[in-house]
Amino acid sequence: MKKASWPLWIFGGLVALFVVGLMLNPRHVPSPLVGQMAPALQGTDLLSEQPIDSADFNQAWLLNAWASWCSGCYLEHSHLMELTKTQPGLVIVGLNYKDQADDAKAWLDQHGNPYQHVIFDPTGRIGMDWGLIGTPETFLIDAQGRVVDKWMGALTPERIERSLLPALQKLDAKGGR
């Protein structure tokens, strides 16, 4: 055994990995949909009970998955309401995930409705096509139907400021709105 330093080097690599690892969040899983064409969203509107098809949107839109039982949704709700005022042209579509229709309607009555459409998905089957793992989750889809970005968990003012609004500006610049 002439060279005995290789274990030290391997160990060094391992430590470097651990140092980086401590700064990562193992539970953060990016969506494979980002950068891909969004799945077709077809369903029934919770309020109007009319059929809805995302193919008719022809502009950039936000898909926000929510439920009346979800506390994170409550936390972000006022910020979504705010967004309807600051971004008047933006289409926000709600995906009412695994909820009771009456609960959902009552919730919107009480807290306000930021959504142009609310698609009712009581079984979660539509959510599955979007790779939803819970609520709230928000997707930004451009006019061409491509998923631009995705936010898991509540949209905080910081996240809207630092990530959502810049993404919208970028779309404006590229004509993706």
Binding site: S71, C73, L75, G134, T135, G153, A154, T156
Partner: peptide, 19 residues
């Protein structure tokens, strides 16, 4: 502190993922 607040919000949101 703001960072912390954001994280607790995110965490809270995650907890609520599961009925």
């Amino acid at each position: 502190s703001a960072m912390k607040a954001v994280w607790s919000l995110v965490l809270l949101a995650f907890v609520s993922l599961i009925p």
